[in-house]
Design a protein around this nucleic acid. Sequence first.
RNA 1: GCGACCGUAGCUCAGCUGGUUAGAGCGCCGGUUUGUGGUACCGGAGGUCGGGGGUUCGAACCCCCUCGGUCGCCCCA
Length: 420
Amino acid sequence: MSTQTPSIQTPQAIRGTQDIFGPDAEAFAFVVETFERVRKLYRFRRVEMPVFEKTAVFSRSLGETTDVVSKEMYSFEDRGGESLTLRPEFTAGIARAFITDGWQQYAPLKVATHGPLFRYERPQKGRYRQFHQLDAEVIGAAEPQADVELLVMADQLLKELGIAEGVTLQLNTLGDGASRDAWRAALIDYFRAVKGDLSEDSQDRLERNPLRILDSKDPRDKPFTADAPRIDDYLSDEAKDFFAKVTGGLDAAGVTWTRAPALVRGLDYYRHTAFEFVTDRLGAQGTVLGGGRYDGLMEALGGAATPAVGWAAGIERLAMLVGEKGQKFDNPLEIVIAVEDDAALDYATRMLAALRRENFVADMIASGSPRKRYDKAVKLGAACLLVVGMQEGIPMSKLRSTPISPLGDRIERFMDSWGR
RNA sequence: GCGACCGUAGCUCAGCUGGUUAGAGCGCCGGUUUGUGGUACCGGAGGUCGGGGGUUCGAACCCCCUCGGUCGCCCCA
């Protein structure tokens, strides 16, 4: 079988990339197809975005100090000396397009897309360097109804994928800019007082990203996180009202949710609503879909202030949950032709083409030892087996098994028109 | 970036305290049988034991480095 040239060594795949095949590939396709179907129900318009952008698109919108920008981006110079970056997320590029392509005229604009993203991270379960996401955004809508619509769509997507069980919607609000800043300051004061007793990670977070201390997994931090200042005490009346309308809308639409006061977003541009659909079935990578409102992003990119909400979902993680359900995606072989004599090959080829033109899922076995072709054909597990051979110098086909209708009827009709 | 475990045939794995030419099942290829819903038997191809270096009379096995995988931490979908 393998006659490799010893002097040439095959390059290996890049770490953290995947060659998706078989049931995994089918589950992946199922996730994308379901997303496409649901997105149309909600009238989200499909967009295709470039895989790379000028580096500034991401560094300005995500924040220079975030881990994603400072150490996880695939950035490089092109031949003109321009710094480019493979997209680590969708939102920044879509925001850029909204500004540079005049999409303001369509506001409020509902868009959806999906495709590969790149992050230089250590691969682990459900995390890759080239990974794939579904993405949905509503741009130019300040109303909480936009948040609600996005969440209801996400909820329906998970249900139609058949994986909603065991997945919970965790919901929080970060308040408006002023609320968020006040809360953040209070958290810093509170944790600074006990800094020495916090984990090393959290001591570090205190300066960089104090909100993150709240969902620290380190047991040393737990005693302090419980009594930490809560966002609710810092929300403006407007922010409270906004959040109440979001939760009210979810209740009206029949979407169950859980308040998660410690849920924060990693990226700087988030305001108000933050949410994650979380499962306990994927180990450490439990977030299956996440997002929130990012009213501050457009200005960070030099555009007019524009409210927006969005979410993204990891296709690999969704596909893993789908795969766990044991769903079968292979399209079953309806008819297989076993060619037991090479003299009848053209006859069989003509027949196979005719079958496929009649929309049969068909295949043919015509290689290897003629005597073993029948067994090979049987092993393919087709509903129907057709043996082709020579009889007195004339190619002949014999139907070896006829399945029950309606497939059997279709095959019978085909055989009659073929002339048996 | 940090930590733990793991890399033997296409796949799943065995290989004793380091000891001749590294094995099995499945799969693949061929032959015989059977002559019709996955038969049985026989034979065959296929392995730089992830890669490199070291220790040793001798390394798949011990040590170091490296590449990859898996699962955590960080971060994040």
